[in-house]
Design a protein around this nucleic acid. Structure first.
Length: 614
RNA sequence: GGUGCCAUAGCUCAGCUGGAUAGAGCACGAACCUUCUAAGUUCGGGGUCCCAGGUUCAAAUCCUGGUGGCAUCACCA
């Protein structure tokens, strides 16, 4: 994997590298060559655009040159400034990127010329690429087309593993948002990604649900929302079974469940038929949620599909002496690695979760020829995946070292963890409909009569997506989310809709004042709020890179919020309609347009749509 | 008990591989719509960055040891 830095950073890195060489010869100290990519990587944001557009901390140079970082920063600033001057005088017309360089303490602060910003940032952002296959409505500037990484491994991301016969709740939403955002981020950054899902359509939870439905349920099967209804059947089943623990009924119940499981396994009998119809209800519900969220999968792996094969596979491994027998069961001893014993076949010869995950991994590696594999699953499975990856490694799969478990923390309610068993869950469908209703009541109903009902419905759904997805993604993956419906429905401050609202304002500005592509007088953009935006735009790609490398979209959330905040600040400080000159107006429009493109693209990477107006 | 994660303002959280004066939102107190969308903006108060050591020119950030919380530790998924 190779990282490609954006043009302004690369330009700054070349200048700094030359400065370091000059300094080295001045001091007559031979130093290790520092590559431009190392320098570009070390460039940081200045605390404020007044101090600089980008900064380079001279700490590591201090060691090599045996001088204080502040002295080095000062000397480097002098060298860069004089270099710029001589370049300008010697070859007039040559493009020079730096406007000035200043040392502040140990930092070398760089300022770029307005022309640099226009040429390397604003123009690439707002100029659509000529690729014909890109939909004009979503067409991206050339800036966004250049991949951040090249020579990337072919990667599969598995996410969303809901069970059929249970209802999807807000906890599943976090997984869905995370997985989807990771895929979008990776693809944007230049990865070839295969997305997959792995629903659990077999197991005791299914048997319990069917058992209750057949033997205890008195309700009629509804015509609509059968997936939700089925989820309720499961909860009732679990409660009933819990109640009857310790009674004579307990043994009979266990027997009944075994019978059901056997029928499902043999793919025959009345319960198998019932399984097929009810399974479809749950899948309809999943697809409904995925459609709402704008998520699609390249590959659907079914637990029922890998189930039988996984047992055959593990048996064959055992016969090849790659596994051991212990206490009558079969598995692999990983105690030397501190991972305990990975159980793969129970004493009765049936498999477990790990058994299926082994077979699943084998299929992923062999069928899709993937080189890297990411699993988005909550942190309770941490040991499970460590064991599975270790077993894969010991079985000789070279991809095993490139398997990652993104162990996000789960969502719980103010009064404790959610559980489908206990029935104290908030269904995804409920969150969605409540959110859409709130958005309409509090904001969009003011447009009734002015906008079509279709548009109001569409925007309500888009804004609800913004609120829910941003809410799920902004929290660091290893922190718990305590879901409080009341709090989530208050959408103000740092939220998805705030960013969407800023985009809507930008679209309105561009429309109203006639944004026109073409050259601007970028040096007119000298208001502090304008400079803040320019300096912030500079960091979009490094933030995206960080999200990809850390498998964590939350820093993009923060970045977009800050950009929207800076835009709003500008909006209140600088008028476009009342701009002193036409040139200033066009310059501001281009700045605003570019901000809008970055915000829209960023939101898109989080899976959040941008309404035309709101 | 072993292992992993977490602890930053009253509450919810940012803080990138150590680096510029620890920042947002909510809540609270003020100000701003005849002028580009007030889902907005500005100002204000509010901090023992869990504790104790250590490494370093420099620690909220790294290391060690505590304290508190959560998860997990073979026939469940």
């Amino acid at each position: 994997m190779k990282k490609n830095h954006d043009e302004i950073r690369s330009l700054a890195a070349v200048e700094i590298q030359q400065g370091i060489l000059v300094l080295g010869s001045e001091l007559q100290i031979p130093i290790d060559q520092i590559s431009t990519s190392q320098i570009a990587e070390a460039l940081v944001e200045a605390p404020s655009s007044v101090l600089g557009d980008l900064a380079y901390g001279c700490f590591s140079l201090a060691k090599q040159f045996k001088k204080s970082p502040a002295e080095i920063a000062k000397r480097l600033a002098d060298i860069l400034v004089t270099q710029e001057k001589t370049e300008k005088s010697s070859s007039a017309g040559q493009v020079s990127g730096l406007r000035s360089a200043q040392a502040v303490g140990p930092y070398l602060n760089l300022f770029f010329t307005a022309a640099t910003y226009e040429r390397l940032l604003l123009n690439p952002i707002v100029t659509p690429s000529n690729q014909p296959e890109v939909d004009p409505k979503t067409s991206l500037g050339t800036y966004f087309q250049a991949p951040i990484y090249s020579e990337t491994p072919r990667t599969m991301v598995e996410f969303s593993q809901p069970n059929t016969h249970k209802e999807m709740h807000v906890g599943h939403m976090r997984n869905l948002c995370l997985g989807d955002a990771l895929i979008r981020l990776h693809r944007f950054a230049g990865y070839e990604i295969i997305s997959s899902t792995y629903p659990g359509d077999v197991g005791t939870h299914v048997a319990k649900c069917l058992w209750y439905m057949k033997t205890h349920n008195k309700e009629d099967i509804p015509f609509e929302n059968r997936g939700e209804w089925l989820g309720r059947m499961y909860s009732l089943a679990h409660l009933r079974l819990e109640e009857e623990v310790g009674t004579p009924q307990e043994a009979l119940n266990r027997e009944a469940l075994t019978t059901i499981l056997r029928q499902l396994e043999q793919k025959d009998g009345e319960y198998f038929e019932l399984w097929k119809t009810t399974r479809a209800w749950s899948i309809d519900l999943m697809k409904q949620v995925y459609a709402w969220a704008g998520v699609s999968f390249d590959m659907w792996y079914w637990e029922s599909d890998v189930d039988a094969e996984s047992i055959k596979y593990v048996n064959s491994l055992f016969h090849q002496n790659k596994l051991v027998q212990s206490q009558g069961a079969i598995g692999m001893n990983l105690e030397a690695e501190g991972l305990g014993f990975c159980l793969l076949l129970k004493t009765d010869g049936t498999g477990l979760y790990a058994t299926k995950d082994l077979e699943l991994a084998r299929r992923k590696f062999q069928d899709f020829k993937i080189e890297k594999s990411i699993y988005v699953v909550d942190l309770r499975q941490a040991l499970h995946f460590k064991q599975v990856f270790k077993v894969l490694e010991k079985l000789g799969f070279p991809q095993a070292n490139n398997c990652y478990h993104l162990q996000y923390n789960y969502v719980e309610l103010p009064d404790g963890p959610m559980s489908s068993r206990k029935g104290n869950i908030i269904p995804i469908t409920q969150l969605i409909s409540k959110m859409q209703e709130i958005v309409k009541n509090n904001f969009l109903n003011r447009y009734v009569g002015d906008w079509s009902q279709e548009e109001i419905d569409l925007v309500a759904s888009q804004v609800a997506k913004g609120a829910i997805k941003y809410g799920m993604l902004r929290i660091d993956t290893n922190k718990k989310i305590v879901f409080d419906m009341e709090e989530w429905l208050k959408i103000d401050g740092e939220s998805g809709p705030f960013i969407q609202y800023s985009v809507a304002r930008i679209q309105s500005l561009c429309l109203k004042f006639g944004y026109q592509p073409g050259p601007i007088q970028a040096e007119l953009l000298c208001h502090p709020t304008e400079k803040e935006i320019l300096a912030h735009l500079l960091n979009f790609k490094s933030v995206v890179g960080r999200c990809v490398e850390g498998l964590s979209p939350s820093s993009l959330c923060t970045y977009l919020y800050q950009l929207a905040k800076k835009f709003n600040h500008f909006y209140h400080e600088c008028s476009i309609g009342q701009a002193e000159t036409e040139e200033l107006k066009q310059a501001r429009l281009k700045l605003v347009k570019a901000s809008g493109e970055v915000l829209k693209t960023g939101l898109r990477l989080l899976g959040i749509p941008s309404p035309e107006r709101m």
